[in-house]
Design a protein around this nucleic acid. Sequence first.
DNA 1: CCTGGATTGATGCAATTGCATCTATCTAGA
DNA 2: TCTAGATAGATGCAATTGCATCAATCCAGG
Lengths: 148, 148
Amino acid sequence: MNDKTVPSPAAIKAWARLMRVSRQLVEKAEEALKTAGLPPLAWYDVLHELAEAGEGGLRPFQLIERTLFAQYNISRLLARLETDGLVEKLPVADDGRGQTIRISAKGRETRRRMWAVYGSSITQLVGAKLAPDELAMLSALLGRLRHP
Amino acid sequence: MNDKTVPSPAAIKAWARLMRVSRQLVEKAEEALKTAGLPPLAWYDVLHELAEAGEGGLRPFQLIERTLFAQYNISRLLARLETDGLVEKLPVADDGRGQTIRISAKGRETRRRMWAVYGSSITQLVGAKLAPDELAMLSALLGRLRHP
DNA sequence: CCTGGATTGATGCAATTGCATCTATCTAGA
DNA sequence: TCTAGATAGATGCAATTGCATCAATCCAGG
């Protein structure tokens, strides 16, 4: 049904690089966080979205859309964040099923400390390796691969 | 110690795209394999390396170097592959600790069937989205981000 | 030849993920 | 108003991952 014949060598090479480099970089970033005694990247992603959302917070399904995590994964991640006091779960007025997740002051502080380490990793791993115009080119090319 | 100040917006954007796109693409490829009733990507990576290695096979630690999987991960993955009859574990003559892993005929067949699906995914997700020179550019840029 | 340290691979146990399914609520249409 | 189906989120259970550690070699220096 969906066969475009065999991929071109150029496509295979780009794919392989993408897989390998992204794995390497994630691993490095995770390692840096762990070494600093901080939570994993997934926590950052969620705290980041919640911090951007502000006092209004976000519904879990909105976090799913933004972070691409699976539903059950978000559900449990939020439970852990709540246990650690990094977020609060609030009932929603007009929808009895749902809840609104709001980042707490402690959550903001944790996010800030994570960013000090994470941002530094980004600088080392990407910012220091490519010139600004190359970074822009890379972003543009990757942008063309979205949404499938 | 290792702080280059805050990352540039261009670096942050490239990083974010890389994280997001690679996750999306892996997910799509995994999904295609699952839908076809085939094993996950990790199995392909190992079978691919073993197929390239030929009759001589590879030592587990060589697979670790090539695939970037953790040692315990390879150890267990090989156990599963052996259970399924896709690889054989052979004792090594000059090193009593180790073993050599060799792909079986069934393993080659499984790899072939996986490639039919995986290769098609690569074509759709990458090959069809960028022109050949763009693919080359992407590979080159990603190549500059390796090894850190 | 011996010994301390390094290397290779496996594994017990806890945490996380994935899958399937469940409950509760909401919404649209008869 | 009632009901079938959709949506939001949680959860039991199995599989996988991560961590720490272990046993079995191997190897280099004395």
